[in-house]
Simulated assay, not measured.
Amino acid sequence: MSKAKAAAPPPGCSLDINDPKVQEAAIRIQASYRGHRSRKELREKGPPKVLLNLKDVVLLEGSAAKLECRVSAFPDPFIVWSKNGKELKDGPKYRYVFEDPDVVALVVRDGVLADLGKYTVTIKNPFGETSDSACIKVEVPAKITKGPDTVKAKKGSTVVLKADISGEPPPDVGWMKDGQDIDEDDRVFYDIGDTNTTLTIKKAQPSDAGKYEVFVENNLGVDQSFARVDVQ
């Protein structure tokens, strides 16, 4: 039984590998490929670069926030996150996340006011390192964490009512007596600090006796607390 002959290629489609022109073209193709591969390797191997920067984020109290950026690095980089210059360890509070080959992220869980600050990611490989920073802004409803105590004072003494406060943005603070705003003067006045407020009554008089209220307010919430002052 005779074997079938292979069909001849269409005219103009045959290739003679011994043809000097064919061999020269093959050499040019191989050189071009080697050059492309070399350029590709040079482009990939080098110090890390940040392609998409970190952005500031807002963290609500009790919730989580994520900082992320897009990087270019080959070989694979070593990632370190820090807050205000102090390294953060990967764990329950701070979670290192690698979502895509070129995206790195940090998740901050169980947000509290102390999480406010500047966060930095440092990206290293054998060719060098780079870094980028952004801030976490924490929003906390205004709150009176400890209200003023009821006071029994002697006539002519100095009375001080104190309340511990918190909130971010910092809350507006006010004091009232028997439902009326207190008009400050040299004898009765109040001070507002970062974490507390005090009402001072100098040379207390029987007319100073009554129900005192302190209140705090920001765009996230309002809180108040009461205390009684008796003057004898």
Rank of each mutant, 00 (worst) to 15 (best):
G156C: 05
G156K: 08
G156P: 06
S157Y: 02
S157F: 01
S157K: 03
S157P: 05
S157A: 09
S157H: 01
T158I: 03
T158R: 05
T158Y: 02
V159N: 05
V159L: 03
V159F: 00
V160F: 00
V160H: 03
V160S: 06
V160D: 01
L161Y: 10
L161D: 00
L161S: 05
L161F: 14
L161M: 13
L161R: 06
K162A: 02
K162E: 05
K162R: 14
A163I: 01
A163D: 07
D164C: 01
D164V: 00
D164L: 01
D164G: 00
D164K: 06
I165M: 04
I165S: 04
I165L: 03
I165C: 04
S166I: 04
S166E: 14
S166N: 06
S166H: 04
G167I: 12
G167Y: 01
G167T: 11
G167M: 02
E168H: 12
E168P: 00
E168R: 14
E168W: 10
E168Q: 13
E168L: 07
E168A: 12
E168G: 02
E168C: 04
E168Y: 14
P169N: 10
P169K: 12
P169V: 10
P169C: 15
P170S: 13
P170R: 14
P170W: 15
P170H: 14
P170V: 01
P170K: 14
P170C: 02
P171Q: 02
P171C: 07
P171W: 01
D172Y: 13
D172W: 11
D172V: 08
D172T: 08
D172N: 10
V173R: 05
V173S: 10
V173T: 04
V173K: 04
V173C: 12
G174T: 03
W175I: 14
W175R: 12
W175G: 07
W175D: 06
M176S: 10
M176G: 00
M176W: 11
K177G: 07
K177E: 11
K177F: 02
K177D: 07
K177P: 09
D178Y: 13
D178L: 12
D178S: 13
G179T: 09
Q180V: 15
Q180K: 15
D181V: 07
D181F: 15
D181Y: 11
D181E: 15
D181M: 15
I182G: 10
D183I: 15
D183Q: 13
D183V: 15
D183L: 14
E184W: 00
E184L: 04
E184M: 14
D185H: 05
D185P: 08
D186G: 03
D186K: 13
D186A: 09
D186C: 02
R187I: 06
R187A: 10
R187G: 02
R187V: 09
V188K: 10
V188C: 10
V188G: 06
F189L: 06
F189R: 14
F189M: 04
F189P: 03
F189W: 13
F189D: 06
Y190M: 09
Y190G: 12
Y190F: 13
Y190P: 06
